[in-house]
Design a protein around this nucleic acid. Sequence first.
DNA 1: CTTGACTAGTTATCTTATAACATATTCCTT
DNA 2: AAGGAATATGTTATAAGATAACTAGTCAAG
Lengths: 162, 162
Amino acid sequence: MDPDGTLAFASHDHAACRDGAMAHAEAVAEAKGLRLTPVRRRALEILLESHQALGAYDVLDRLAEEGFGRQPPVAYRALEFLVEHGFAHRIRRLNAFAACMHPGEAHVPVFLICSACNGLAEAPGAAVAASLRQAAGPLGFRVERMSIEAVGLCPACQGASE
Amino acid sequence: MDPDGTLAFASHDHAACRDGAMAHAEAVAEAKGLRLTPVRRRALEILLESHQALGAYDVLDRLAEEGFGRQPPVAYRALEFLVEHGFAHRIRRLNAFAACMHPGEAHVPVFLICSACNGLAEAPGAAVAASLRQAAGPLGFRVERMSIEAVGLCPACQGASE
DNA sequence: CTTGACTAGTTATCTTATAACATATTCCTT
DNA sequence: AAGGAATATGTTATAAGATAACTAGTCAAG
């Protein structure tokens, strides 16, 4: 599923993209004995609707409209579950969340955030992670988690601004 | 001044470290015709007191104690100035700010955040930045800004936890 | 000595996130 | 099938982070 991250910024069959990710999540949850409950499932579906990051309160509004609780912890807990099990990512720079485009695969995501259209892609980050570790090594620092995020212009928005 | 980022996690003459950074900032401000006003200067001094990131409200409290305004914009504006002109950095992952350890030099900072002691170091990020651009290139994404942050254990805290 | 740009201060509000507790559901054990 | 532990959902309340909009002071250039 989108191994090189090209999908997000390219036009594609998004219904299939979304359904595939959802099916994958179901399978993973099943395999690991995780409980993909209605709120959690719905939160993931909401994130999967677009290749953009959504704030917790955006997700909450959507959930509330559909009859789930309307208090912040409802959204935060569902999102926390999704992030914890690799179904979604937290984008620190945006204080927001996005569905993971490579669920199941171990990967260090590099987020590419388009400042014009808010599009979000996940580029493969193995090389970046390696060089980050290389930079940290000489300081004797033991890296446990990392966030690598870039802001710029996606292909479509570069074209549009010229 | 600390070209390889080793200083933050090593014991060192911090008074000299701080004074050097401050002198550097003064010189740069002078050279560029920037107004390093009392609030701004004091905010920078506060950040320079430790190799840790401080929240805007921490800085605000300190400023208020010393007779500056006690409303959030006072701190946010001073910090914004410092970040904008390269005297400080914003650490997204922590919603916090830290003095720049390489003022004046063009550099992409890689932040190493110790989860045990909250220490913060700035590792050289040229290689990481390059590989990030390499990862973004195939997607046609034009990188404008990036944040590269790692959480883990600094040398001292690794020793302490064993 | 006044005008215009910038700086600092205020009030008010908005957004993001979590703590703490009550209720309900699930599922394992017997 | 019933008891009980663990998990999940919901609530109220509040903490923490950030910005908008306006007012007033400062300062240097004309």
